[in-house]
Nucleic acid binder design. Structure first.
Lengths: 236, 236
DNA sequence: GGGGCCGGTTCACACAGCGTTCACATATGG
DNA sequence: CCATATGTGAACGCTGTGTGAACCGGCCCC
């Protein structure tokens, strides 16, 4: 369960109670700066912004959360009926809203739906394996919370590995499927790229790419480590 | 203004009145078959499904509207407080809901936001990314508090970048999507415009446009955007 | 209608990054 | 202990990109 950002700090008692009863993990912040400073490493799982008391400040927090360079999805606005008109030109600042005073079950249902939406609508153009995340749209890679600086070929090779975990590929297969053409005698080129990938993955995760002696390389699936039957290699 | 699908037929009087007063064009249908038969050529602009009377039938209509091969976006569910629990395993059937009896202004605000989300509403007249602000109406650009003097093509290119932050585009993609036509051998033209944009953005912000070697260019989003599916966190 | 300016496109060149290759060291298996 | 396979470090050369400048067409002003 990810952590919800809640504004203001402290939040209205009924809001806090509702979130607790519904089983949400949350953290209250008084302004956008604190929100940025206390952001968990996996990012906020959404936000509940209460505009009852200080709508201007609430909208300001929303604006900060929604800036395009680090946009937060899953922002729910809590406001009174008289504030409805203020939403008209601020459609981009929130994903859902709930009228205050609210029915606890309604808020819970909205938050659940919001988490469903952000989990499902989120851009599918990514692939992940354990700690490793590749974003195909941005050509970026992350291992844990550390961004990887990969060259084009390194990225393409890693992308192929991540999308085919567990399988063993010969150097010739990798050359034809990653490089995309038949190759003349340069099988060792793969070794060099694998080596550089291992180096950039770091000491910890270098084992993600395993050498299968006299066959080729395999990505992930470390459960089969050690002495396996040769039949598996022959069958692959 | 596109036409909203409304269920049931006839809808509750207060619903019809609210839609009329808010200026929405709508058409009531009694079941999914009629909805398919009377669908306007441009498609439905969304749906308001009232589950007050016959929730089972309402959910059935939703299921039909949401079938994967012709999924309708912008489905708003109208239900009573006692029906909230029924939403839990039907998250995919709707995009928003509103408790009945409803405040007309709330329903109106929800429908407006739904139309904004589904993109059926006119484009915003400004866009911003970090320090950068573009005003599409006046063709003005500002970086921080400094106005940028951009030519037409520079402005169009920057506008495209700002509205697609983080994604990598090849030169060919940029040519076809910014210049708007297929191009003969002029891929380097993009380079020159990018260079001039960088120069005008200034030393500080030149890094906003990043070169992705042997791929193309990317605007902003150096930091990883954590908007990935929650499954990745669970899978670790 | 002519000349100068402005903006978009194209060209030529230099540099740097990256893919490839080689030579050698090390590991593995028979 | 040998043969083969793989890891490692470094060097080479190509391709892609940055950069300055020229070209060219349209527009406005004189």
């Amino acid at each position: 369960m990810t952590t919800l950002l809640v504004f203001p700090d402290p939040p209205p008692p009924l809001l806090a109670q509702t979130l607790d009863l519904a089983g949400f993990a949350w953290k209250a912040v008084g302004n956008a700066a604190v929100a940025a400073a206390t952001e968990p490493s996996e990012g906020w799982g959404g936000a509940v912004i209460c505009a009852d008391d200080d709508p201007e400040c609430a909208f300001s927090v929303c604006r900060t959360l929604r800036r395009p360079d680090a946009r937060l999805d899953g922002v729910l606005l809590l406001l009174t009926g008289t504030q409805l008109a203020a939403l008209e030109h601020r459609e981009d600042l929130f994903d859902d809203f709930c009228l205050s005073p609210f029915h606890p079950k309604e808020l819970e249902a909205r938050l659940r739906h919001l988490q469903f939406r952000t989990g499902r609508v989120a851009n599918p153009e990514v692939a992940a394996y354990a700690e490793l995340i590749l974003n195909f749209e941005t050509y970026q890679a992350m291992i844990g919370d550390r961004p990887l600086d990969l060259t084009y070929m390194e990225y393409e090779l890693l992308k192929f590995f991540v999308t085919h975990p567990g399988k063993v590929f010969t150097r010739e297969q990798l050359l034809s499927r990653v490089w995309g053409y038949e190759y003349y005698g340069g099988a060792r080129t793969v070794d060099v790229h694998v080596r550089r990938l291992r180096a950039k993955l770091g000491e910890e995760q270098a084992g993600l790419i395993q050498t299968v002696r006299s066959v080729g390389y395999r990505f992930g699936q470390t459960r089969w480590n050690g002495a396996t039957s040769p039949a598996s290699a022959a069958g692959g």
